[in-house]
Structures are given as C-alpha cells and as structure tokens.
Design a protein around this nucleic acid. Sequence first.
DNA 1: TAGATTGTTAATCGATTAACAATC
DNA 2: TAGATTGTTAATCGATTAACAATC
Lengths: 212, 212
Amino acid sequence: MADKYISEAVIRRLPRYYRKLEELQAAGVERISSQELSREMGLNASQIRRDFNCFGGFGQQGYGYSVEKLRLELQHILNLDNTYQCVVVGAGNIGHALLAYNEFQKKGFYMKAIFDVNPEIIGIEMNGFTVRSMFEFDEFVKNNDINVGIICTPEDTAQQLCDKLAELKISAVWNFAPVELNGPAWMKIENVNLSDSLYILAYKTGEGETVE
Amino acid sequence: MADKYISEAVIRRLPRYYRKLEELQAAGVERISSQELSREMGLNASQIRRDFNCFGGFGQQGYGYSVEKLRLELQHILNLDNTYQCVVVGAGNIGHALLAYNEFQKKGFYMKAIFDVNPEIIGIEMNGFTVRSMFEFDEFVKNNDINVGIICTPEDTAQQLCDKLAELKISAVWNFAPVELNGPAWMKIENVNLSDSLYILAYKTGEGETVE
DNA sequence: TAGATTGTTAATCGATTAACAATC
DNA sequence: TAGATTGTTAATCGATTAACAATC
C-alpha cells in the first residue's frame, strides 16, 4: 500500500526529534516518556505521541519509549540509513563551504565533485577537489550514481540547472539560490533561502515595539 | 498601541512577497491584483489580501496593488530600510562564506568583523578581515554598534555564545549551529539548521514509494 | 455609471491539544 | 495486581479559503 499522507508540519519536526534522541542516547538515557520529551523540547506530549504514531507504535504502555529503538526508527524514517552521492554546482562561497563541511559526510551525504561555469576557477583545487567544468557534468553524474544535486549558483541560472538535474533524473535537490524552482513531481526540492531567513530576523527585530 | 499579533505562518510568507515584488518591479510591472499574484506565486488570492491587511490597506478597490508602493511597504514591514551591523563568530567554512557573501551587504546587513577562539587562525586574513580573538569581542561589540550576532561555532559552544550576546544586549541572532538556543524574550533568534534541512530532503527522497 | 477588485466577515479545513480506554 | 503511559478518539483552536458588501 502507499504511504499514508504525512503533513509538512510533522515532517519538519522529525529532524528535531532525531537530534534530541541522539543527544539523549549520548547522555546515556535509556528510556523516555512523551511527557519528559515534551518538557525537554517544549512541545505538547499528545503531539509527540501522535507524530510518532504516524509511522508506527514505537512505545510501550506504562513504560514509554526506548531511546535507542526510537532513534533507530527515526533514522530509518528519515532515510538516514542510506548514503547519498552529492554534487555541488557553483563554486562560490556557499558551494565551497558545503563541499568542505565534514558533518554531512558523517551523516552519509558524500560530496563527490564541484562544478562551475567560470573558466577562471575551473581547474583550481578546492578542499581536495578540482573544480570541474559544466561540460563534464552529464558524464560525471551518470558515471558516479549521483542522487543529490546542490544548487549554489546565482538565482538567474538556478532554474536552468534544475532542468538539467531533472533531465539527468536526479531526484533530490538542495537549493541555496533565492528562487522558487519548478521541477517534475518526482523531484524533491528543499530550499535553504538565506536571504529570506535574514529578512525574517530583520522583521522580528522590530516586533513587539509599540507603534502609534 | 501595541502591534497586533501576526502569526508565524504570515511572517514566513513576507520575504517571498517581497522578492516577487522586486522581480515584478524589475520587469516593469506597475500594478498587480491579488488574483494575478496568486497565480504567479501558487498561493490563494484571499490569503494574499488577508496577509497584506495584517499590516494595512495597501490596495485600491477595482485597481489592485501598485507594485512599487507595495514593495516599499513590505520593505518597511520587514525593517529592510534599516541597516544592521553584524559580527560573525566562528571562522570555519560557514562563517567564512557568510562573511564573504556580498548579497547581504547590498540589503543593509554589514559584516563588521569575524571572531574565533582558535589561536591557529586568529590573525589570519579572511576576505579583507583579520580574524579576531574572542578576547576582543566585548570591546568590539560595544564600540561598533553591533546589533546582529551570527553564530557559526560548533554546537557545543553555541549556547555559551548566545549567553554572551545576551549580556552584550545584541537583540538579533542568526544561528547556524544545529542546536535550539535559549535567550531572553527580547532576543530574536532565527535558526538556519542545515542538517535539519538535509534530513528533510532525505526523508522526502523516500516519500511516495510504496511500502509493504 | 458599470466593472473590477479590495477589505473583511463567514465557512471550512487541518493541526494541535485534551481526554481516556487499552495495555504493558 | 496497581500504576504508568501509550495509542487513539473527541474537542478545540487557528489558519486557510470562500463569499460578498464596500468602494474605487
């Protein structure tokens, strides 16, 4: 049967649960009730139980949840027991930083190459990688089982790149360009819009001030 | 009177409106109705009108909205007609990238300095800045009207840094460390959790697949 | 004026929270 | 068994959408 529908609100809480459970396990905590977890995370205990029950009954009445078991379940739900082969496109500041950020490799997201269109930087060494030309892109993606594309190009070329990724059947796109991308339904796009985030911070800076 | 309560859902849409209006204005569009905007953005027209009306009546019956006027209103609502003096703490990959990313300066977010605790990188040149020691931090913040702190440290020191920022009365924090920070109520914290974002992408990668 | 489109109230939908029976 | 806590149904709350009177 097909997966039942899980709301975006639930999905966005999953990584937080996962992180908290990693933390608890590292601290040697073996079991936890939804109520304790609710206190630790500032969420409602009903909500927590309901969220987990979207995916199965991971707890035990009268006991709570096994931290280790629940962590593993979440890991599985988040598909973190897979590995991912990623390419970064755009060797500017952000692209460079993501390429070098080791935490991702630890979680199973392997950076395999970085590409750019600028002849001035193609060929230079970047964090143990050589910046490749986009002329090599198709070939590289096909030969290296790439399944994640990371868009770090300026906004005006991002859609074009997205189309290229679709053509190459890359199903996961992590987009850092500040534009809404359109891709086929099977393509999953996750946006990290740094400008938007900064704008929201600016907005909140003025919040709570008295007006008039 | 105090500002009326604006829901987080509305706030998170404001930057998108703003970006779209910039785009429309750049394209020479002078006026737009909520219906046209709804088609362009994939939102409901009622929602758009309702969102704007949280802040005032910016439209005109029978006409729609003036793109320029609305853009300016949004700019004001988002506090983007202010300027911001920022310090980056943590001179790793992310800190370095943010320091160098010119788009932010263009929007009025000025990077004034970068700090680190690692003696090996203190003093080195980074994008026209010298990496400063945290021993200079308090002094620098006080003397330079710093009002935004950008946290790019590892997660285990992030809370400590947040406390320091609170002590120095910095009211806006842009947090890139993958932890939930606790600060005083007047401190506005915006989180950019790259791991969480990547986990959500991984989750969605497996979505829509048939199970059992 | 007639037509168009806003601003706003009313209806709907979905997400959160409360309550409690099931059960370990 | 008695106590605790889940899984799940029912109640509430808030956000989205529809409808329409106000008005340019």
